[in-house]
Design a protein around this nucleic acid. Structure first.
Lengths: 336, 336
DNA sequence: TCGCCTCATGTTAGCGCTAACATAGAGCAA
DNA sequence: TTGCTCTATGTTAGCGCTAACATGAGGCGA
């Protein structure tokens, strides 16, 4: 606002300098300054130097809010995850942000905390910032959430799953098949009574169905399912509630390691190979930790960062395959 | 743009509906619609109902980009962390976002990847979105970064440390003292040759200085310092490079657990108490995992989420104490 | 009756920038 | 010279919203 020009190196006197203040100081029109910022090749070298000097003198920082309004491009993407702390979704956020930041996109991060109401609220909040795409873990929990995303007419990427009717693009893996793969392995190992421990979110539930269906198809008794509160992620106590069980598939590695800790207390954990374990334990996520503990943790390995990078790519390209199955891998170590 | 009104439930025909389209449909002026969105109490109930119906009919989503430009309030905060994956900073992001999201603030997330150049670039990128505050882990690595933040004239919160000359507010703990506390404990335990493993970022380095100074003051030999690459966070191999050492302080729990894994391979890990360990290991962060493994991990406990929540509070309140020391706690378990 | 307040709503201008369309001068072939 | 092209820069209008200031219709005390 100050019509006085700030002296070089003095720092700003009041409000942040604007394009036109830079323009005035450099003796050009504002559009020329705008071009120096965005398409420097269109400006003659001497003019450009003068403008750049003026920008430095004033400490000019472009106002992308105004730029976004004028150009209808915000250069931002909205990212919605259930939770970021202590979770493998952090890898996904890292992956997509590593891909998007160099291209000038900012990441607007929101957490749903596994709460459908909060999810819808966060989706609306994200959309009101007019991101150029939305990347979310899973799919909207409510019809309203779906509607919001469909109407937004921007790329939407659902991740960490392969929904049957995606809104737009998908980067994930088949959680049901992961459950099946674990059951097959445990059956082949001669296990008789399986159990699943973890949350009851959509993806965890699909893993459970895969495990159960395959166990039943193999003639085993109906597996047990223990739904754990999200707080006791390393659930030491879970073992006490699963007597007679000789194999456990945990919804994530943290649950698995917690369960193993319960087994250890009960004297049911060996330092030997899988065949020596009274109770087999398989995790999901392939945390580095799983390789470091003893016995080492068998797990379904999923590349969270690849999911993020793929999701980022899908927001940038409108054509091509919009449903990417990144798969998973059953990594067998000593726990089961 | 379409002057045709969209029929209820039909979904948008073209561009997103604007305030004035809603206003036209409800037979009021745009400012009245704006008031229904932001200050509904100022609008008569019948008018409000009509406007709300029109908003629903058109699927109106307010454009916060335009609102921000007009009101000079973006309702966003910029958050800069070294990395979000696999790190305790995720707790901090979760904590601050839990506090800010209900108040209508969005989190714009950026990662520096421990790279000073990238940090400056991300700071400039954040500032160009005109956030109402910046929360960062640590302090700017360069003079340029400091200058940018000082000139921004918004609340700045530096976290995870207690810088001597903060830009504005601080929410952290004394990393030097953490090193001292660990050294004191190890000396009391009769350890003779200490070592520090971890990164050489500013906070890790301060922990190292604390450990070293206290060890020397206690008459021990100069501790060893092993700078690990960020990639081998669980550094199994570190042990081989530290012969003769009988106590290790790891910059974080992941390093500590990795080191213990190396000790196990070398036959230097016991399931008994700290006094039975040939080599004591102390971590930092108090990951849940540390409680689950065997032997349980002794660690400096730091409340990452409390740092985040405190930082959020500091961005909202301009007055009051701007330097909050959240402390730490030496939690002694079986590893050292 | 007047003047003044309150409540509900409207008018105007402008936030800081960019798209789209001028304009002006230089270079140059015919 | 004319007329065309190319390069560098400028002018104008407007993105969708909100702050600040009207306006106008009642209510109400004296």
């Amino acid at each position: 606002m100050s019509s006085e020009l700030t002296e070089p190196g003095t720092g700003p006197t009041g409000a942040a300098p604007t394009l036109s203040e830079v323009a005035k100081r450099a003796g050009v029109s504002s559009i020329t300054v705008s071009r120096v910022v965005r398409m420097p090749d269109l400006v003659a070298p001497e003019t450009r130097a003068r403008v750049e000097q003026a920008m430095r003198d004033l400490g000019y920082i472009p106002n992308l809010v105004a730029g976004a309004l004028a150009s209808a491009r915000t250069n931002s993407v909205g990212v919605l995850v259930p939770t970021i702390a202590n979770s493998i979704f952090a890898d996904t956020v890292q992956g997509l942000s590593d891909k998007l930041e160099p291209l000038g996109f900012s990441v607007i991060l929101a957490q749903s905390r596994y709460d459908a109401v909060r999810e819808d609220r966060m989706l609306a909040a994200l959309l009101s910032r007019r991101p150029e795409a939305i990347i979310m873990v899973g799919s909207p929990a409510t019809e309203e959430g779906s509607r919001l995303l469909r109407n937004a007419r921007i790329p939407i990427v659902e991740t960490w799953d392969l929904p049957a009717n995606p809104i737009d693009a998908v980067a994930g893996f088949d959680n049901y098949k992961a459950g099946v793969a674990v059951a097959k392995h445990l059956v082949a190992q001669g296990r008789k009574q399986l159990a699943f421990i973890g949350g009851d979110d959509p993806r965890g539930t699909r893993r459970w169905f895969g495990l159960r269906d395959e166990a039943l198809a193999s003639g085993l008794a109906e597996p047990r399912r223990l739904i754990l509160d999200r707080k006791d992620s390393g659930s030491v106590a879970a073992h006490a509630r699963l007597p007679d069980v000789d194999a456990v598939f945990a919804a994530n590695d943290a649950h698995a390691i917690g369960f193993m800790s319960g087994l250890r207390k009960a004297g049911l954990l060996r330092d030997g190979p899988a065949s020596a374990q009274p109770v087999a334990v398989i995790g999901l996520g392939d945390l580095e930790m799983g390789r470091l503990i003893s016995p080492t943790l068998s797990t379904i390995s999923v590349h969270g960062d690849a999911i993020g990078r793929t999701a980022a790519t899908l927001t940038l390209e409108r054509g091509g395959e919009r449903r990417i199955d990144l798969g998973f891998e059953l990594v067998l170590r000593d726990s089961g």
